[in-house]
Design a protein around this nucleic acid. Sequence first.
DNA 1: CTGAAAGCGCTTACAG
DNA 2: CTGAAAGCGCTTACAG
Lengths: 362, 362
Amino acid sequence: MPEARPQATMADVARVAGVSVSTVSRALRGMASVSPEARRRVEHAARELSFAVSRSASSLVTGRTGRVAVLTPGVEAWFLGAAVSGVASVLRECELDLLVYCVTDMRERTEFFRRLPAQRNADALLVVSFALKREERERLDALGMPVVYVSQHAPDRASVYVDDIAGARSGTRHLLNLGHRRIAFLQSQDDTAFAWSSQDRLVGYRRALEEAESPYDESLVVRGRGRRGIREAVGQLLSLPQPPTAIFVEDDQMAIETLAVLRSCGIRVPHQMSVLGFDDQDLAEPMGLSTIAQPAEEIGRAAARLAQAIISDPECDPARHVVLPTRLIPRATTAPPPERRADHRPPTAQNPSVGSADAAPH
Amino acid sequence: MPEARPQATMADVARVAGVSVSTVSRALRGMASVSPEARRRVEHAARELSFAVSRSASSLVTGRTGRVAVLTPGVEAWFLGAAVSGVASVLRECELDLLVYCVTDMRERTEFFRRLPAQRNADALLVVSFALKREERERLDALGMPVVYVSQHAPDRASVYVDDIAGARSGTRHLLNLGHRRIAFLQSQDDTAFAWSSQDRLVGYRRALEEAESPYDESLVVRGRGRRGIREAVGQLLSLPQPPTAIFVEDDQMAIETLAVLRSCGIRVPHQMSVLGFDDQDLAEPMGLSTIAQPAEEIGRAAARLAQAIISDPECDPARHVVLPTRLIPRATTAPPPERRADHRPPTAQNPSVGSADAAPH
DNA sequence: CTGAAAGCGCTTACAG
DNA sequence: CTGAAAGCGCTTACAG
């Protein structure tokens, strides 16, 4: 069994190496003004004692913590996991540590903004996918540390995001171009207003309809959270006097659940209903899901790079924006609506639903 | 635009409140020996100045960082994301910060164990899903801080895990009980030996076969990584002289991809092939996937609680183990093999594949 | 109940 | 190239 032994300090290393603490500090940070001989002895002693410098002590004097904090509504959703991964990979290269604040409900959120635990414990804060209230924004402004907004547009603040409006607009256009005229939009129930993206995607959807001079029908915009909620939202659409022929779903996770609901009702995708997602997460391709791809990991990477730039160069424009592209990936869940299809005919075993031989990738 | 203003120190608060720094420190930590009047003034001043205590400074004197570190091969895989979420939620309650070290490839791994950046920067380290080499284990033992092993059994060290052997054994037994005699096992390609779980699940599979006196056939154990790899692994099975009638897949993500591959070949699940996963991740239910559920988030929570216990109570048994249960969740992707089915007959439109009306959840 | 002082482990001018 | 000394912002005996 391992023994807990006291950790070596710089003074210990100095004693073993036969030099002063100053020299140890300089040698370990690779400063030039150290003789090869002293450097060798210090490195040897440090290794022998398993010495690691205490960031608490060094940060006290340098004023830098060597840490970057991320505030996120979680890490389980595909986008968040990928974004945090991207952040982590860049920080590792910069030898910065990653502090994660997961805030999943309103109580935790209130508590975070009250205590602001990141204050003085990180050199920068990345805020991922939060639709902030004005007071919250002001709290962050008063933090006295660089803040980078991720997956959201923040005027006059550093931010990294994709143009959700443009992405949703091109997705909707894709459906319009296929000949759909009744296009539904399925949104997550977002009581706590965690994400802007959801709202922006709806804006993009509406804009594409406007541009096509296709009437906006409120009854085609439905919301649902969780398995049950999605089933009910789809139920709303299917019970409309004129049901839609296509559903644009806010993200791939919900889109895949929507596919399952439709299949369980015996509705064939895309023959009777087109489904379009947003994200291009790992399962989108195997499921044959048409979607709007966004580079989640790259968003995280760009945000971390931006934070690092602001930290290390105070002259750097602190309101810099990075906007990354989305791309439509048409797969097997979008097709012309039934009335427009050349092969329009009732279902048979030769005309199976999505995921079967004729529709799957490869 | 926000102004970066210098952060207030305890001395600032003391000045504004008209008391000494000691009193500020005591008042802010809620110690009893502070007069109501002094406490009020301190709290007021602290709020006014947006004061937050510097953990760097306090940890230098208390010897505790107020941080717990997690070493993980990522946060994107379902299990890892859920486990980290669980850790985060418990730490938040304890007002401990979460430091995340994502190590995704061999180079980063080597680097982590060389530098050990968590040393002296956290009060405990949680190691998630790593199949450690002896040297790596020794490095962690020498760390001089509590280490909790998550999702892996570590003799004489604190650890939290599910019994993967038992889980895989009961899954395999489920397939045997349905009447399957040719059961394949699909494993991830695991060059870097990141996870023990994979190996243990194979052990459980073999054990169940032995117990049923069902012969172990090496050609039924296949490996593949990524989309392409899974397709090839399934191809191996389908080209066997005697193909399997069921596939036990190492995790749900791969199982869902396997379903997509089978569908794209026109093989109906479960009528022609049963598929069983492991995890019970979010999409398992909507996909109708039969699986072995494991409580990933609870594993994370238990690990964080264990770390907290060891940190705050040095008398606490540092080798405590927490073993959590797995449960078989039979859904729509497992059924008796074709030759044993009462309704054995060729595919028709009335006998659709998984996910269609008769098989889906409600 | 309160404050002055020492000290945690580093880095950084400063002097040599 | 090197070392002694000051100081970063706290907490904690210690004395009152």
